[in-house]
Amino acid sequence: MTTILLSNIEIIPGKRVSQHLGLVLGSTVRAKHAGKDIMAGLKNIFGGELGGYTELLSEARQEATDRMTEQAKAIGANAVINVRYSTSSIAAGASEILAYGTAVVLEEK
């Protein structure tokens, strides 16, 4: 099977939804490690981008997306449309990333 198409619009140009398979989601909870936390503490004085956190969160988001894609593959979809991301900090130093969307089967129009 080819790669799953991901998109956050409902209507994909040139394609038609032939089967609607319902909601799929993937989530992950990540904590920062101490070394990065110390660097971030310094950055809190000088200001500016926290590169370590940016990387950490984009990795986490990739992980959540991968889990969602796995779930979509398992139920036989070839696309996930209307994808949304959501982030929440559940405790000091840890955050949850959730990706969810609608799994569908697309066919060429």
């Binding site: 950055k43 809190n44 000088f46 200001g47 926290l50 991301y85």
Partner: peptide, 19 residues
């Protein structure tokens, strides 16, 4: 754009204020 390929793209940044 009805004959284009669709694909999800994203960009993120973490930024902090100074003291």
């Amino acid at each position: 754009f009805t004959n284009h390929n669709a694909q999800l793209v994203s960009g993120n940044v973490v930024i902090s204020v100074d003291y």
